[in-house]
């Protein structure tokens, strides 16, 4: 009996630790509330042709917008997203998946990341895949998410995310794209508190005739994005 007691305690401790390190990440916009955000973006790009390089960078540019929660119907929040100049109505599920965007018909809605449903354990990885079509080609896009930490006292969960996108390439066109970021989710309010992410794009263009291959141009682009909540109005 004594022999069984020690492993039993360990298992119990492990279960308790696991329960404490898990969280349910889902949006919970309150009907009638307005959530204000500031989105900041900065970009830099480089191009290189032989020994000649050019560079261009733009200083951070900010854009304030709000999310007005209208209602919750058929498993989706009805939100008005935008500013005074333009507002877009969106239907968003609790996990962040977009259900509809009537004001953006025909524009091609981006592939947004979605949080896993139910309990999500700390250090657990999740993936969301989608095939993006461009003309006759299909390109696979993958969002990978990792729940890094959960602060139950503050009600904040930190999630790391990356995007993998296999851009069409061939022997003469070598490309790479990466997106890495982190989001702090306010579990008490059910909204994003803060997020920042960076993207990197590289395109190497070569020329080939018969057996001779020559590098011609290299293009690189980086962008940094920050999203911060600036207030909630009930």
């Amino acid at each position: 009996m004594k022999r069984l007691r020690k492993p039993g305690i360990l298992i119990l401790l492990l279960i308790m630790a696991t329960c404490a390190g898990a969280a349910e990440i889902k949006y919970a916009y309150k009907k009638g509330s307005t959530y204000s955000y500031r989105y900041t973006q900065s970009t830099s790009s480089k191009s290189k042709a032989f020994t000649v390089s050019t560079a261009e960078s733009s200083p951070p540019v900010s854009y304030d917008f709000s999310v007005k929660s209208i209602d919750f119907q058929d498993g989706a929040f009805i939100l008005d997203v935008g500013d005074k100049a333009a507002t877009y109505r969106r239907y968003i599920r609790e996990n962040g998946e977009i259900k509809g965007a009537p004001a953006e018909a025909g524009q091609g809605i981006p592939f947004f990341l979605t949080f896993p449903e139910g309990d999500w354990k700390v250090a657990e990885k999740r993936q969301v895949r989608k095939s993006l079509s461009l003309g006759n080609k299909d390109v696979m896009a993958i969002w990978s998410l990792l729940l890094k930490s959960v602060d139950n006292e503050k009600g904040l969960a930190e999630i790391l995310f990356t995007a993998n996108l296999s851009l069409p390439e061939d022997q003469l066109r070598q490309k790479g794209f990466s997106l890495k970021g982190r989001v702090v989710f306010n579990m008490l309010e059910g909204v994003i508190h803060q997020a920042d992410w960076q993207t990197t794009y590289k395109f190497n263009f070569s020329n080939k005739a018969f057996a001779i291959t020559r590098n011609l141009w290299v293009f690189e682009k980086q962008s940094s994005h920050t999203l911060a909540m600036t207030g909630i109005q009930e």
């Binding site: 955000y37 970009t43 733009s58 854009y63 998946e97 981006p110 995007a163 997106l179 293009f219 962008s223």
Partner: peptide, 24 residues
């Protein structure tokens, strides 16, 4: 076009209207 589909990770982000410089 393709990277523009994943560059905004969250569905609460409105369509980006910020223009950026291009070194090319």
């Amino acid at each position: 076009i393709l990277t523009g589909k994943v560059v905004s990770p969250f569905s609460l982000l409105p369509p980006t209207r910020l223009q950026t410089g291009k070194a090319e």
